[in-house]
Design a binder for these strands. Structure first.
Length: 315
DNA sequence: TACGATT
């Protein structure tokens, strides 16, 4: 939605004094909210009663009175993971409401099934309420659940966009390409990697740095995995260096076939890779070959290990 | 830091 869309929608109620769509500072992308001032307060009331809850495309818009702008309401948004799949938004609110006024909350779902992904968000009115919720709830086990939940401050959308831009820049940067070839790990990777691929393409056995039993490949029926089985095969990759970025995973797995997503798991504070990541591939045969080929592959000074992700909830 | 998930 553009600023103009916002203006058109809300000016249909009454005369506007001002109207502002909030955008990311770097990318200019809408952050999904904005502020509208009406000349007459009765029009503001009308806007809330007629537009709140309106469904637009995939979204349900929320319209309410803006809270007074103060530093206290900033950074009060929490990210919650490890929730039982059976937990509803109402359950989530029940758990968090003792700590303060909840502005919004939601549980993320798999689009295809509507099933909970076990993660969600809770935005409190005030920062100290959010802090209290973290210290009281993080690591605790909800009633009736068997695993503890993680409660922490949510990532800031502009931080996330910065990461994406940096990663794109790093991939495209000529200095990076010139600096790497003779000494960097990418050079060594590229040479031995192409050897490896030519082996694969000729249908020959694959050299490995470890005597590999192809972990995770022994039971092809285990193709179902915790990560979106409808969307592909999810591969767990371990022993990545702290400097690993998404591009490296794309480069490693892309030649084996269709890769739908890659994820480097990072420490939130340092933004360094925690040593592992995930790659989702569309086709089982290609994923199988990638795991068999890349397990034991030496990237820089590290021997990679990989397997299909641990199935979840299987008896 | 051997299984994430960021509206």
């Amino acid at each position: 939605m553009t600023q103009e869309d916002l203006r058109n929608l809300f000016s249909s109620i009454g005369e506007l004094e001002s109207c502002k769509l909030i955008r990311d500072k770097l990318t200019g992308q809408s952050l999904g909210y904005g502020f509208v001032n009406y000349v007459k307060s009765t029009d503001a009331e009308k806007a809330i009663s007629s537009l709140n809850g309106l469904r637009m495309q995939q979204k349900t818009i929320k319209v309410s009175y803006a809270r007074p702008s103060t530093p206290l309401i900033k950074d009060a948004n929490l990210y919650v993971s490890g929730l039982p799949k059976s937990m509803t938004q109402e359950d989530l609110q029940r758990i968090f409401h003792p700590f303060g006024r909840i502005i919004t909350s939601r549980i993320l779902v798999e689009p295809s099934t509507g099933m909970s992904r076990g993660v969600g968000f809770v935005r409190f009115d005030k920062r100290p309420e959010a802090e209290n919720a973290i210290s009281s709830l993080n690591g605790t086990i909800p009633a009736g659940a068997k695993d503890p939940v993680t409660v922490k401050f949510a990532n800031n959308p502009s931080q996330k966009n910065q990461q994406v831009l940096q990663s794109l820049y790093a991939a495209a940067s000529p200095t990076r390409r010139l600096a790497a070839p003779t000494t960097g790990p990418l050079y060594h990777q590229a040479r031995s990697f192409s050897d490896l691929l030519s082996n694969v393409n000729m249908g020959l056995g694959v050299k490995r740095h470890l005597p590999s039993k192809c972990a995770g490949c022994t039971a092809p029926s285990a193709a179902s995995s915790s990560c979106a089985p409808n969307y592909g095969i999810c591969i767990f990759v371990y022993n990545l260096s702290p400097e690993t970025d998404e591009n490296i995973l794309w480069q490693l797995f892309g030649p084996f076939g269709a890769v739908t997503s890659v994820k480097v798991i990072r420490d939130y504070q340092t933004q360094k890779c925690k040593g592992y990541g995930f790659v989702t591939m569309t086709n089982y045969e290609e994923a199988f070959l990638a795991v068999c080929s890349l397990n034991g592959y030496k990237l820089g000074d590290r021997v990679l290990q990989m397997s299909l992700t641990k199935p979840s909830g299987a008896a």
